[in-house]
Design a binder for these strands. Sequence first.
DNA 1: CTGAAAGCGCTTACAG
DNA 2: CTGAAAGCGCTTACAG
Lengths: 347, 347
Amino acid sequence: MAATIKDVARLAGLSIATVSKYINGGHVIDANSAAIEQAIKTLDYRVNTMARGLKTKKTKSIGVLIPSVRMVFCMDIISAIEDELSRENFSTMICDCQGRPEQEAVKIEFLLEKQVDGIIMMPSSNSSEAARRAALAGIPVVLVDRRFNTMECDRVLVDNRQLAEDATTELLQAGHRRIGIICGPEDIYTTVQRLNGYYQAYEKLGLEAYNDCISFSDYSLEGGYKALDSLMELPEPPTAVLATNYETTIGSVMAINRSGLKIPEDLSFVGFDSLDMSTLVTPALTMAIQPVQEIGEQAARLMLRRLDPQDKNKKSESGQTHSDNKYKGEEIILTGKLNRGASIKTI
Amino acid sequence: MAATIKDVARLAGLSIATVSKYINGGHVIDANSAAIEQAIKTLDYRVNTMARGLKTKKTKSIGVLIPSVRMVFCMDIISAIEDELSRENFSTMICDCQGRPEQEAVKIEFLLEKQVDGIIMMPSSNSSEAARRAALAGIPVVLVDRRFNTMECDRVLVDNRQLAEDATTELLQAGHRRIGIICGPEDIYTTVQRLNGYYQAYEKLGLEAYNDCISFSDYSLEGGYKALDSLMELPEPPTAVLATNYETTIGSVMAINRSGLKIPEDLSFVGFDSLDMSTLVTPALTMAIQPVQEIGEQAARLMLRRLDPQDKNKKSESGQTHSDNKYKGEEIILTGKLNRGASIKTI
DNA sequence: CTGAAAGCGCTTACAG
DNA sequence: CTGAAAGCGCTTACAG
């Protein structure tokens, strides 16, 4: 049988109130702390989180909801979130929709039943009734890499528009005009942003984009492979390609190598998020890099801030609380950076 | 304020005991169930898991500990575990050691503090003091893809020896003799098993293996890339290569393509665990496939079985309980299969 | 089938 | 700084 605070109190010769105070970081005279510490050790005592939670109404757990565990980007972010949360003694409950968007509502309900203190999510679509319900129930929701159309919500974003613009500009300045871009699903937030950046690069240089060079995929390895092939099968193939996530970058490179094309002699190339790969192949690939680690960290921190009552006064100052219907959500925008390699040929 | 069982009871005009019984699946006369159901709906009532847990001494959560979230194999298994556990209303708490084995003990302690009902883990080494402590504390531990040297533990394994033997035999029968193998870290369980299978294939055909064709890696994409390069730089390069996990398979293929070698004309190749890739490249790759989905499922089921008291009688029959020091652990061995492509040339 | 009551192991004002 | 006591929201024998 596991030891309880009662056992510790008895062994230390003190009341449970004192032991509780000690455990929670309150001040207790030295002799007593020593006795308590000793008792905890001998009994191998661990606080019963459920009894504590019942009183405090907090589980110290955060639900993390992602569209699919099979995307490196998601996993990197989860890893960073978990790391940051565990530092504050929060546990991370991961829910994977396995690529099935209809699972999202089910999983959110599951998390709510599990009484998580908050939810960090990367939604599959641009709105979520379930997320709204959670927010209304007082469970903070933090969005990662997405926005909702129908509801303002705390969120951590990367300036993907700028990053895609930088990548495209790099290619345009090297003289490329027909630049293939391998996007994700057409309607999701990051695709829209990256495509905006792509167009904007042309626009700023007074050039016109070629719509037949725009290819949508499911952001998978296979999708990238096929997208690259179909781009190269165009009557007039692009002279450069930009892949916009980890998986499509790898898929593209495989397709390029397979077809016998040489980078950059036959095709210039810029990848996304695959820092590990960029140095692997020769020549080194120019790569647009998102600060994945920081995304996860910031999302975790933002959540922690929402949960921590210590900024109560701040809230009332700004008038931004969850029940305030003018609430706009806090937005954190991080910037990516372009890592220059030798995969672009000047023409 | 969230509604409690008391509120539901009041609204339904019944006692909390009856409501509790209803919630937990007990029989209640129809009129009353309807009233309770109605009350739950109107109040948007959800059981307080902490209050329940305090009584039942169960959190209905399972900790899952993996060496690194950056391995596709781990993620696939986690996904399956989560899916299976959530079906039984268990939540999954994921802890990632981020490739740092020294984190393992820390994370296990974290899970214990969080009072998970059980731990499913893929340990980084061949023993774990922390895992032993957990098991001793009555927390079931299920190992995935690993065994401990120092302690018997429930485990779900794949017959990697057989799978590697099959793959190697396939190459030997095609006439290859110098077969490169890209393993993982030298001392981990799967590496040992796969290497055993490799040797055994030679042995069964009365042939001798070439030790210089054996290459160890960290199972990463980069590791696979480099391992392949160094194999091909041998004074006498292998005529075939077997990569033994997802990442080294992708890395190898990239290195092969990059070097201009053609599969299978210049080099025969067998990969591992990369079903998505095997059909992607031309020719289709012969691939050793582990039943990842099933590994996760079985691990979850095994854990659930350990937790469910309904097999109490069975336990006493077999005399296998956790406190029994002759306990050998339950071992589930799954078999992989070789998916034949056209990446092997007969010589 | 239903209800009154005890108790799970904590935290938290409130006294002292 | 310390302790007695109430109470968090459930479940579970035990009566009826």
